[in-house]
């Protein structure tokens, strides 16, 4: 057994993972928390992206949108990642070989990197944008990529059950 499969096996057989996997209520509740967290996180990210693209929140400068919406995005992220970790642990041995689960992790990484790139490269320039001073094309491309990436993350997550 490889090191990875040994670690996964230990995680799967741990008392906490087993209890969650065999639970009557905890598992569905945590699944629901996961959906809510993802909805809040991806939903707010989508609206920031649409704001940068000039489609939504037209009178609101992107700088303010980002500042005001970020706490909700973080809260959603916290719920999504904690519930996601629990759901993964409970099913680990059965799903770590699932191609859609693996794809989802890769997409999450890319989406996360895109978020970091967006925030670091626009930290100073973002204050200058408004409905008359539009963001540069590279930034708009990052926003469009963000929309696509998070949509694919959600798709990959849904498809896990179909593998």
């Amino acid at each position: 057994m490889s090191l990875l499969s040994q670690v996964i096996h230990a995680l799967y057989e741990s008392p906490a993972s087993t209890a969650l996997r065999e639970s009557e209520y905890a598992f569905p509740v945590i699944q629901t928390v996961h959906v809510l967290g993802v909805a809040a996180m991806a939903g707010t990210i989508a609206l920031v992206d649409l704001n940068v693209l000039g489609v939504a929140l037209r009178r609101q400068p992107p700088a303010r949108t980002v500042a005001d919406v970020l706490p909700i995005t973080w809260a959603g992220f916290a719920l999504a990642i904690l519930s996601g970790a629990a759901l993964f642990a409970a099913q680990s041995e059965k799903i770590y070989g699932n191609v859609f689960l693996q794809l989802k992790f890769v997409l999450l990484l890319i989406a996360g990197l895109n978020v970091i790139v967006f925030h670091t490269t626009t930290r100073r320039s973002i204050e200058g944008w408004s409905d008359t001073v539009v963001p540069p094309i590279g930034v708009k491309a990052s926003a469009a990529a963000s929309l696509l990436l998070w949509a694919l993350v959600i798709a990959a997550g849904r498809y896990i059950a179909y593998y």
């Binding site: 989508a46 696509l148 949509a151 059950a161 179909y162 593998y163």
Partner: peptide, 22 residues
Amino acid sequence: KVRYGLGIAGAIALALAVPAQA
């Protein structure tokens, strides 16, 4: 652009042909 974005995502989802196992 919202519908366009959703449309792209939908098209990609459809393109992911799924082996009917699970």
